[in-house]
């Protein structure tokens, strides 16, 4: 009995971690700038490949993962400075531009890196509860997801950058008129969103085989979570992660993986009907 309960909790934690880690970067960029970053998957891919290359060069995994996340962040800042910043008041153009970037990067990587690479293997082995075997690394991923949420909370609620970033999110003109350099806020937030996408890739790198289009593996979950959560990372992404993880874990357990995937999409449709601004829009309306 205990083993069954643990198994369900473990699967919930696994799905929750995947949703949160996949969505956090996308949610920050959308919440801060209203930009739907179609190249989100390529930032994730960047984190994966940099991590794998570093490990293959003999670096310890955690260091390689940090470098993977940082490089995605730097690429993000470079992209923001050169292209994205011209598109802040043109949401449709920004979708097209980031989508174009996504296509070019994916095709470029297919040409440059070939179609598949050897993975690096999941570390930390497994443990046993009752008759079930579980991967220890999956628990690390759950811890990382909680860590990302806690870190975002601290950054946005407790730091000077966070206060200025929230002011910019709520009323960019007014923030400017008070002296906030909103372009810096945008660049920093875009970099942070890209770095979190890179971190997602870096954390999942040891669990998958590498192909240049693997960013797609994460895309459905990340967009679904952001759509359900709404524009606010703190109020939206975490509750959306819990809600969707419950739906998916239950359907996975009863009807299998395909049902879980379909259930996720149905959950989105239901939430959009009931709460057009997502969970965070609904929560902040109730607050007022």
């Amino acid at each position: 009995m205990f083993a069954e309960i643990f198994s369900i909790l473990y699967q919930f934690a696994d799905v929750f971690a995947f949703l949160i880690l996949a969505a956090a970067g996308l949610a920050i960029i959308f919440g801060m700038m209203g930009i739907i970053n179609m190249a989100h998957g390529e930032f994730i891919t960047c984190g994966i490949y940099v991590t794998v290359i570093c490990v293959q060069q003999g670096m310890p995994l955690p260091l390689a993962q940090a470098i993977g996340a940082l490089s995605a962040g730097l690429v993000g800042i470079a992209l923001e400075r050169t292209i994205i910043r011209h598109l802040y008041h043109r949401p449709l153009d920004s979708i097209l531009a980031t989508w174009g970037i996504s296509l070019m990067v994916t095709q470029g990587m297919l040409l440059l890196l070939g179609s598949s690479w050897r993975g690096i293997g999941t570390p930390l082995g497994s443990f046993q509860v009752g008759d079930y075997t579980f991967s220890t690394y999956r628990l690390v991923l759950f811890g990382a997801a909680i860590g990302v949420l806690a870190g975002l909370y601290l950054v946005f609620m407790r730091t000077g950058y966070g206060i200025m970033a929230r002011a910019t999110m709520q009323n960019a003109e007014m923030a400017q008129a008070l002296g906030v350099r909103t372009q810096h806020m945008y660049a920093a937030s875009f970099g942070m969103g890209a770095a979190l996408a890179g971190l997602c890739g870096a954390l999942y790198a040891p669990t998958m085989t590498l192909i240049p289009t693997m960013g797609i593996t994460f895309i459905i979950e990340s967009f679904v979570t952001v759509v359900v959560g709404g524009a606010n990372v703190l109020l939206g992404t975490a509750p959306a992660g819990i809600l969707l993880a419950v739906v998916r874990t239950a359907l996975n357990a009863w009807y299998g993986q395909i049902a879980g995937q379909i259930g996720l999409l149905i959950a989105v449709i239901v939430v959009i009907r009931l709460l057009p601004e997502g969970v965070s829009g609904w929560l902040s309306r109730r607050e007022r």
Partner: peptide, 27 residues
């Protein structure tokens, strides 16, 4: 120091955080 028509305080931040915005941003 600009005080716009309609006040435009940051509604989902506390009073203190509203004040801190200009303190942090101010040269």
């Amino acid at each position: 120091g600009y005080i716009p028509q309609g006040r435009q305080v940051f509604p989902r931040m506390t009073v203190e955080e509203n004040l801190r915005v200009s303190q942090l941003a101010g040269g």
